[in-house]
Design a binder for these strands. Structure first.
Lengths: 191, 191
DNA sequence: ATACTTTCTTAATCTAGGTTAAGTGCAAAA
DNA sequence: TTTTGCACTTAACCTAGATTAAGAAAGTAT
C-alpha cells in the first residue's frame, strides 16, 4: 500500500476504487538534492507528498538572508499554501535537501478530487487543522522561549531530521544565526 | 441576514433551509469585558464567532507572563484549535476585552453540521487554510523583522483594533515587553 | 590527488530588546 | 473622597543573540 494512501487512511477510509482514482490523479517523481521545486515569485501548482528524502521551504528576506519556514521528510506534505490557494505568485522557495521521491498532486486535480471524493475535503481539513495547531505552538514558542529551548524542542520533535539537515538550516528554522547556533551547540555539548 | 451567514456565504452558498438549520445549531450570548470564555486546562467545547466586541486568546508561560496569541473582532472566529480538535485540555485562555455579542457553535454541533451540510466542511477548510497562511506569515515576520516593523504591519493589518486594545496586549502580540513598546512608540511619534 | 566551494567554528565587538525600579495618570472600588 | 490598583512612561543598566572577520573542516568537482 503506497505511503500516501496509508497517510490518508489515518483520517478517512477509502474504497479500493477511490484509492485507485486518487492515485491516478497523482504523479511520482524523483529529484536530486538541490533541485528547486518552486521559486519565489512563481505560482505554486502542486502539493508535494514525500515518499523519501527531505524538502525545505524558505524565503529570502530583504537582507538577502534565507529564512527557513519548514522541513518535510517521509510522510509529510509540502506546498506554498498561500500561493496554492490564492493562485497568486508566492514568495517561498521549495528545495530538495536530500534526494527525494515525491508524489505530486496538482491543485487542479486536488479540487477535482474534492468533488469526486468529498471525504477528501475532510482529510485535507484535518491535515490543515493539525498544521495550524503546530504553527500556533511554534509561534508561541518563538515569542516566549530562548533559542536553547527552541532547539531542544526541535530535537525532541524531529529527532530523525537533525542528522539529515545542514546545521545552518536548523539555525534558520529556530531563528538564530549559524554563528550563534554553533556557539550554543558547543555550550550544550560541554554540559 | 446575520453576520455569520454572510461570513459563510463568502465561501460557500447555502439554501434557506441550510441557513436555518445552521442557525438552529448555534446560540447567541452576550458577555461583559473581562469575562473568561475558556480557561487554561479546560477542554474547548465551542467555536466563537464575534458579532460585536473584541476577544483575545493567550497563554501564561512559565515566567508567569501572559503571551497573546490572537485577537478577534466583528466577523472573526475564535477557539483553542488544539483543544477543540483533540478534545484534550488546552493551555489557552480566551477572554473578552470589549463587551461582546458572540455566536457559539459547539464542537458537537459543528461535527453534526459537517454531515448534514457537507459544504460546511469546505467552508471550515477554507477558513483554516486562510488562518494557516496568516500564521505562517506572522511566524516568518517574527523571525526576520524588527519589533518596529512588526508593529507597523500590525497597524496596517488591524487599524481598527489599535484603539480598542490595551497597549500592553498589542506589545505582547508583537512579542515585546510593555516597557520596550512604550519606548518604541515614543520614538515613532517623534518622527 | 588537487583546487574550489560551502559549512562550521571561534572570538571580539555591538545592539535590540529585556529587566528593574520609580513615578505618573486615571478609573474603579470603598 | 479617598484609596487602591492597573496601564502607561521614563531611565539606568543588563544580556541574548547579531555582526564581522578569519580560519578549520568537509564536501564536490576537475
Amino acid at each position: 500500500m503506497p505511503l500516501i494512501i496509508e497517510n490518508i487512511e489515518k483520517h478517512v477510509s477509502l474504497t479500493p476504487e477511490e484509492k485507485e482514482l486518487f492515485l491516478s490523479k497523482t504523479e511520482i517523481k524523483k529529484y536530486k538534492t538541490k533541485s528547486i521545486l518552486l521559486n519565489s515569485g512563481d505560482i505554486c501548482e502542486h502539493s508535494y507528498f514525500v515518499n523519501s528524502g527531505v524538502l525545505r521551504s524558505f524565503n529570502i528576506n530583504d537582507n538577502i538572508v534565507e529564512q527557513v519556514l519548514n522541513f518535510a521528510s517521509e510522510g509529510w506534505w509540502m506546498a506554498d499554501m498561500y500561493s496554492l490557494i490564492s493562485k497568486k505568485p508566492g514568495n517561498l522557495f521549495i528545495e530538495v535537501i536530500e534526494d527525494a521521491e515525491l508524489v505530486l498532486l496538482s491543485k487542479e486535480n486536488q479540487d477535482l478530487l474534492y468533488t469526486e471524493i468529498p471525504k477528501l475535503e475532510r482529510f485535507f481539513r484535518i491535515l490543515i487543522e493539525n498544521s495550524l495547531v503546530a504553527h500556533q505552538e511554534r509561534l508561541m514558542d518563538n515569542l516566549s522561549l530562548s533559542a536553547e529551548d527552541r532547539f531542544e524542542k526541535f530535537c525532541k520533535r524531529y529527532p530523525n531530521l537533525i542528522q539529515r539537515i545542514p546545521q545552518k538550516q536548523i539555525a534558520s528554522y529556530i531563528g538564530v544565526t549559524p554563528e550563534f547556533f554553533s556557539k550554543m551547540k558547543a555550550k550544550l555539548l560541554r554540559k
